[in-house]
Amino acid sequence: MFSMKKLSRRDFLKSVGLGAAGLTALDAFGGRSAEALLLKKRTEMPPWKLQYAEETPTICCYCGVGCGIIIHTRDGKVIGCQGDPDHPINQGALCPKGQAITDVSFVVAENERRHSMYERPRVRNPRRLTKVLYRAPFATEWEEKSWDWALSEIAKRVKATRDATFERTDADGVTVNRTQAISLLGSATVNTEENYLMQKMMRGIGAVHIDHCARL
């Protein structure tokens, strides 16, 4: 019910390109001129990058303009992106950061050898974090850890710090139910629902140092 919204290729072509009429016209003179025959010799049409690709609309993760982007994926891999032609703000256009959004997950491999047009030379961005990392006191290196371990260890730290510093009342006897020892710097780039949970959790444990980069 809440699955991804997919666009049909036809919708997509209609609004990015020259319209349906242009499409037919272009297709029509494919085999007309002698020159075009030369092209035909090799293949009817140049291969299509988005063959069998899925298109998922997203909103850009960078500035506050809120442009629509279509992410092209195939076999669970990002193979490209494009400004969302239906989006009333950017109408298909994108700036360099928006265009490079694909780099966050998949980058073009430097070795450009490919076995077919279907296969795109894209690999996971090798710099992405894929494991929980832990740095012990005074350590010089990270250690890889499991989620279960990390969540329960963090919970223990939160509890220990909270319990040691929790103020039920202040010097004036006012009920304050707070800890001044735990701080949250939230994010201006994660989803609203995520920020909501973060601040709800932090206010739940009594934290008052809650801020994010809107103040910077």
Binding site: F2, G64, V65, V132, R135, F138, V190, N191, T192
Partner: peptide
């Protein structure tokens, strides 16, 4: 000389998850 314990948790990027954002 730094005693701080650091937990670094790997997150999903904007199109590896679902949710809403609010523009200018």
């Amino acid at each position: 000389k730094i005693a701080t314990e650091v937990f670094l948790l790997p997150a999903a990027c904007s199109y590896e998850k679902e949710g809403s954002i609010t523009n200018s």
